[in-house]
Design a protein around this nucleic acid. Sequence first.
DNA 1: TTGTATGCGTTATCAC
DNA 2: GTGATAACGCATACAA
Lengths: 340, 340
Amino acid sequence: MSKVTLKVIAKTLGISTSTVSKALKNYSDINEETKTKVQELAKKLNYTPNSFAVSLRMKESKTIGVIIPTMVHHFFSNVIEGILKEAERNNYMIFLMQSNEDFELEKKQIDLLLSKGVDGVIMSLSNKTRDFSHLQKVIDSNVPLILFDKIAKTINCSKVLIDDRKAAYDAVTHLINKGYKRIAHFRGDLNPQNSIDRFLGYKKALLDHNIEFDPTLVYICDNNSDFSDGFNSAEKLINDHGKNVDGLFTVNDLIAIGALDYFNKNNIKVPEQIAIFGFSNWFMTKITNPSLSSIDQNALKMGEKSTEILIKEIDYKHKGIAYEYQKIILDTELIIRNSC
Amino acid sequence: MSKVTLKVIAKTLGISTSTVSKALKNYSDINEETKTKVQELAKKLNYTPNSFAVSLRMKESKTIGVIIPTMVHHFFSNVIEGILKEAERNNYMIFLMQSNEDFELEKKQIDLLLSKGVDGVIMSLSNKTRDFSHLQKVIDSNVPLILFDKIAKTINCSKVLIDDRKAAYDAVTHLINKGYKRIAHFRGDLNPQNSIDRFLGYKKALLDHNIEFDPTLVYICDNNSDFSDGFNSAEKLINDHGKNVDGLFTVNDLIAIGALDYFNKNNIKVPEQIAIFGFSNWFMTKITNPSLSSIDQNALKMGEKSTEILIKEIDYKHKGIAYEYQKIILDTELIIRNSC
DNA sequence: TTGTATGCGTTATCAC
DNA sequence: GTGATAACGCATACAA
């Protein structure tokens, strides 16, 4: 941090710090001559305002806190990229934290962010989070909060998400229209809302098309950061149902790829014997054998949009303008490839 | 940020703010009774120190700035995870920025971090960075700087990296020992040091084993965030050399997978007709067909180690202890799978 | 053992 | 137009 302060400039110019401060901000009641004099010297000395002093005085830090469950994940790294880009455009900096799917850590991180005086918080909840008092605390501290993807329905704040239920419904409907009838589902954890919604979309698509819902075709993959779960579930699926299954819809692409690996290694033809539909449109899906149909959920845009509305709320709050919380549902897109 | 200040506590207790300040810090010259009184009230009121005031006063922010070229990348997201974890352990927060392989942006971000008063900076350079004056600026500002992976040789600061040259040498030697003789190399951008070093390791392995270095077997893949570059280069390779090539060492796994995709789609058997060795040990390499041999570069540890030595340097600086810059070379490991 | 005074660097109010 | 002064919240040297 620069050692050049207003005082230094004032002293070398023989004027007061308040004049310097105003001159640098182009206040109308300052003589043009002094203005240029001050601004030139400031530039020459490479003056930058001390951000702690500014924040202390102004009660805003131009800083946003972000908490995500896991860093190493194509979806989240894309969201982060979107957040960083939008923040950059608006001159905000990002404090990044990873809750590591740990509720206690998530709580602690909220406190840390609040104590650091962030102007707002963007977060996606850990799979284990069932109690939301820490979120309420953010709101009660009068700090704007945006939830994305893994949200808490009961918390009153702006949210950015996709319609998981509809996306799943569309994917499964596609499978059905292609003639598949015994469609399995590898779902995620029982707790997170989007894992629930994808399951519900799957189920509804079956029922709407007069296909019996068979609970034995649903498998839980609770570790969604690895494909081994998909591989193992595929093995179980075939052991349990043999050829009496012809389709598979998975909660994410990683699991789909794990399952595909199992099928490939066991000479089960995809999509001839079993069709697969993934979720997230991870870039790897283009290159699997066969390439994998999936659902694009536009993670980048989710990050950008979350940041955009957060900054708007910060701005409104600052100006004392009232605003309503938004619930933004981003479009998803079926990407049909060769796996179904 | 909490509205409870030292002043509030002092006033309700009828004592001075300085006594409160000291009591909360367990100063030895404060009466035990007042101490507990103060601490209890502070707890009850949920007092948290105003971090701007503390930073302004103490000239340290418990904050680290991190700049990486791209967010959506398995290597970097793993590094970030390591940084976040180590920072968490030491009560530091991370400002994350993405230079997006843009030199001008990288420069600007340095200024932003410096103006935010970070206690230290960790970064990996953009591929386009050839001028390092912005790094020197960090050092001149007396802010500890750690470079990792994409470093500047000429800048005098601590560095954390792997021995790219040796790793590449080992991988290519493995191919040679397996009997492959016409080994191609898909290298990265011409500028970054690690792309150069991997190329040099490749070349040296050939020469040390009496295999002629054939420059026409070297292809440049300058977009290392996608596998299409690998696919296209593989196509060129086969067009140019037909069956007169039996091995391939790539600068990273993404490119290896792109190449593998081309071979698979064109019925070129791996490793029978051509063997492949990747770089980075991305988790996808386990699951390709065939699985891909690669080099593990322990990204997580690179993040942790960078943070660890940065925090040590911050600490030393703060205490006025002299320290020497370190150059830490992390171990790499050949992971042999079915592609060679 | 406690309180007073000062300063960190900035902005804002109000005299002059 | 300009400058003195106070305040943001905290830490600390020094006085009491």
